[in-house]
Design a protein around this nucleic acid. Structure first.
Lengths: 232, 232
DNA sequence: CATGAAACATGACAGCCATCATATTTATAG
DNA sequence: CTATAAATATGATGGCTGTCATGTTTCATG
């Protein structure tokens, strides 16, 4: 939705620039003439909390550029429990792993709260990569960092105790998405545990004066001590 | 070491072709004239079991092309326990994640057994990427698949019980590296558990006639049942 | 061949934490 | 505003599996 609604076709609205809103987005930052190049194919979309952008096992449609809001990439395991693999915020891009791997999505993308993004279809993206290899190289760098992050979180979730993982989750979520609040379940799905364990641990941390809870608002009082609890 | 040792400088030995041995290697398969392009900079190396190719936290030196043998990428967590992230065999490439991310290695590369590889220094590789972007795109595809694999193994190690993980490990290791045998510790480090649990589980699987142990040689008798034990 | 080290094997124990149950509070929608 | 669902909170329980201990076998190396 644009604030100054000129036409009901958001396609060509100047308010829906991939880059005007987020000049730091990884694609557009790669080359100054990419933006207008992609502008003609992009489609604005908005989602409410818990709505799905794409489902695991479906084929990739293109790339999604997050304008505002957060998206979580969630994987449901055989026994039904959900795990949050990554969270993408403003300026971030969604769907590039599947596109490059030429594989179906292996996780489901879900809006954390009110979300605005632009979609550019696959064919257009592939054309862009051909004409601007530097864009692909930029994403390559991003993907390589994603792999490190994934392998690090993997090892932490296997090795660390629940309390350590929850402390680490609290610090990470605050560092990256300050203003956002999370349900106990969402924290659990990020930390690789259960909502019950998150609650008990939060109560314990509060008793130790590491933080204060006020509903979903968690204020960290002693970040250094919390970090040491996380073994960071 | 080449079998027909012409000079003590293995550099230009035709036996040390990146591609002659493994025409399917991901770099050389991308373009027919890459091989001779890289040939002049490559250096042959050989390692014995448990020798280190590179250490975590060091800066990337270049790319390693595996000619024969296996390399495991191992991450040691704060508490000292080791986790095998990936295993790279003949035709595989080592060190590309760090190179693309422009980050230090985050895992240590260790020879599983007798290992032969070629090293091409970083500067040469970067030059190749500039002149042959299709090579980078090929690695991009590989990296995207690596990320899926990492996220899948991550979720499995967090969710599944030790027995399931060990069954999965046995199937994976047999499917990919048939001839190789592994210590109980190596299986544990791949499956995310301890040598003791691996032993107990193997004994149990043997009692259930799923497999036979003969020292380190494990023969799978009923792969389908083992798969169902792994929830695959 | 000898010898020390590493791998293999098995038992006992304990503690972390997932699971289930139940009650209360907060959100959400009609 | 009311009703229904979801989220929060807390207690009780049990089992998986990591840890430690001990003994045996195998391996590597001089």
């Amino acid at each position: 939705m644009s604030s100054t609604k000129k036409t009901d076709d958001d396609h060509d609205s100047p308010n829906c620039a991939l880059c005007t809103a987020n000049p730091q987005n990884i694609i557009c930052a790669s080359s100054p003439h990419i933006p207008k190049y992609l502008e003609r194919s992009k489609i604005s979309c908005s989602y409410k909390r818990d709505q799905v952008i794409f489902y695991a096992d479906n084929d990739p449609l293109g790339l999604f550029f997050v304008k505002s809001g957060l998206v979580k990439l969630e994987k449901i395991s055989e026994d039904g429990s959900a795990h949050t693999l990554r969270i993408v915020g403003p300026g971030g891009v969604l769907g590039y792993r599947s596109l490059f791997a030429d594989e179906p999505y292996h996780a489901t993308a879900i809006a954390v709260d009110q979300l605005e993004l632009c979609f550019v279809p696959k064919a257009e993206i592939l054309l862009t990569f051909q004409n601007h290899p530097e864009v692909a190289l930029r994403l390559l760098n991003h993907l390589a960092k994603d792999l490190r992050l994934a392998e690090e979180r993997w090892i932490h979730q296997v090795d660390k105790e629940a309390g350590e993982r929850i402390a680490e989750a609290l610090i990470f979520l605050q560092d990256h998405f300050q203003s956002q609040t999370w349900t106990r379940r969402e924290i659990a799905e990020w930390a690789g545990t259960t909502p019950e364990t998150v609650m008990r641990t939060l109560a314990q941390f509060e008793k130790e004066a590491l933080l204060v809870q006020n509903g979903r608002q968690i204020t960290i009082l002693n970040k250094e001590l919390l970090k040491s609890k996380a073994n960071l």
